[in-house]
Design a protein around this nucleic acid. Structure first.
Lengths: 104, 104
DNA sequence: GCTTCACATAAGCGTGTGCTTATCTGTTGC
DNA sequence: GCAACAGATAAGCACACGCTTATGTGAAGC
């Protein structure tokens, strides 16, 4: 199951932090490690999980490997969440703003 | 971390199935078990996890306990996802439909 | 060609997770 | 009160997960 890989990947806080960092711009594994108190193999393993879930893409550039957010993965979460849109409470203001920004 | 509980809860396929079933209408634990090949304690434990994550609410009704989707939890996922909306690819048709439905 | 560097993979280990069976709690209806 | 029922909790177990250290792979640069 695709959603299985996605949610399992996001269940780990370190992986969500990596994903969030990548959302700010593509980066290689070493750059991602900056200020993250994580070993090189651990980072490599986390990136492999994120990649397996389709949340992240890789692109070899010489001896560096550049990673960036895979829009397909994000879209899959959006599609899953869309099934439950009837339950989004209108009273949450922040969400209203988000909805407006989504409309374009 | 709130998102930690949410994504950890959704990482399990059985729990996602329960959540999806509840999205179709509130139900008690026994009704949820119908056609799910899951023991009574397992269901109880799964519901406890979903409740702990804020994805599901419970309401005692006599000796039954009625469960339903908690809109707050769904909203939290929406808010988390909103951070990555710049990565949603426009070329995915299904998503376009979803976006239109969101706009109201 | 050999060292250096970026990253991946392997193996091992402690901990968390999801299941089971057994038992407890609380409510209904006689 | 007590039997029947809905559900929660406890204890135990197999397995997955995330980390570590050690080693492998491939490109860069002299």
């Amino acid at each position: 199951m695709v959603e299985d890989d996605i949610f399992r990947a996001l269940a780990d806080p370190t992986r969500r932090a990596i994903f969030e960092k990548l959302a700010g711009g593509s980066m290689n594994a070493s750059a991602l490690r900056q200020g993250m108190a994580i070993s090189q193999p651990a980072m490599s393993q986390h990136l492999a999980v994120l990649r397996g879930a389709g949340l992240v893409r890789e692109a070899r550039q010489g001896r560096f490997v550049n990673y960036d957010v895979d829009p397909e993965g994000v879209a899959l979460i959006a599609q899953w969440l869309a099934k439950y849109r009837t339950y989004w409470p209108a009273r949450i203001d922040a969400l209203k703003v988000v909805l407006k920004e989504m409309d374009q």
